[in-house]
Design a protein around this nucleic acid. Structure first.
Lengths: 195, 195
DNA sequence: GTCGCCTGTTACCCTTGGGTAACCGTTATG
DNA sequence: CATAACGGTTACCCAAGGGTAACAGGCGAC
């Protein structure tokens, strides 16, 4: 039997546990009872901390997304060149994936979204990531196209990670980051003003 | 009121209509009644053609996925170089996206999957696409890494498309294909045997 | 000590929605 | 015309699951 917890800690614990459960079974595959069981409490306790299932889920996405963005921002803060920034950024991203498979799955594989609000929340995050990438792209290219390409690079990292996470493989995020950054950087240099 | 249709045609019509409905609202956001309404019939008619909701959904994924793979295969069949193949492939892909937003959304955005079977079905498709790409990658790189990169390129195309489709923009798939192919090709040439 | 707050629980409600049984009208065939 | 085959409908069953009302018990404040 679980000891009682003060509200704040209980809330944190629920969030921790919920990431795992949602990541493994998706939004619709996870019932509030599942989350409650995993947390070692009963359903009404969840509703003391979150208004609804969706509210809980959005809180998760937000927290996890912020962790990712923060990790990448910090890593790239000291970069002194575009290429360096690219490399540090990808490395930080893959490090985040390697450390927290569940978080990655929650954001990018558990596409049990399609709940309008959740979809929007995730789009906001990828969009933020794309915004960071866009400035690295040759300035001669028109702005819209820059952003499109930037979203493509987000997808690139996502595709790579999805495969690795699904296979449950261990991988070296720094090496992988260098590899992907090389690809991306060379690619970006190659696309000029005219298609 | 809808006229009666012979079984074969009704089945086709249901599939056509279901792609749209599922693409717009996701798996869990779509009830069998929704599909039936959209098709102008009642629920039991659906069950004359498909065993279950999941069965219908998997049939959709399969059909749509095959259309995509076929389009790309045909387009790249006549390529005489890796670079040409890359370009033709991406162009065919983006043409497919441009022509059939719903199909794209069904496969890649309606992540209302996480139903184990559906997830697997989609993974099969992306995997097939990756298999086609892998051989283009420098042979000196180890095989597993090749496949990982290939999945990354699938994600690249996916990320680009998702943004465009979500924004509801018209775009020129051939021009976009050239742009992305340039990026990818240059990137692939840049990654050598050593990270 | 006792009062009230705070963390929990039990037991329930009620909608949504997948799936089905039973029935009906139309059309083709002899 | 009888009748069988077929496409379709109405009306229902039932489980899953989000959400809640009402109650229980410990711990700090006074």
């Amino acid at each position: 039997m679980n000891t009682r917890l003060p509200a704040g800690e209980r809330r944190e614990q629920i969030l921790d546990v919920a990431v795992q459960v949602f990541a493994r079974n998706g939004y619709h595959g996870t019932s509030m009872n599942d989350v409650a069981d995993a947390a070692g409490v009963t359903k009404p306790v969840l509703y003391q901390h979150f208004d609804s299932k969706q509210d809980l889920y959005l809180a998760l996405i937000d927290e996890v997304g912020q962790r990712m963005i923060t990790a990448i921002s910090k890593a790239t803060a000291g970069a002194t060149s575009g290429k360096m920034m690219t490399e540090l950024g990808f490395q930080a991203y893959f490090r985040w994936v390697a450390q927290d498979h569940d978080a990655f799955l929650l954001l990018f594989a558990t596409q049990a979204n399609r709940d309008a609000a959740a979809t929007k929340a995730i789009r906001t995050i990828t969009s933020e990531a794309a915004s960071a990438i866009a400035p690295l792209i040759a300035v001669e290219i028109d702005h819209e196209k820059q952003r499109t390409i930037a979203h493509g690079l987000v997808g690139l990292a996502e595709g790579v990670s999805r495969r690795l996470v699904e296979r449950g493989e261990d991988f070296d995020p720094d090496e992988l980051g260098r590899l992907v950054a090389n690809l991306a950087w060379a690619g970006l240099r190659a696309i000029g003003p005219t298609s």
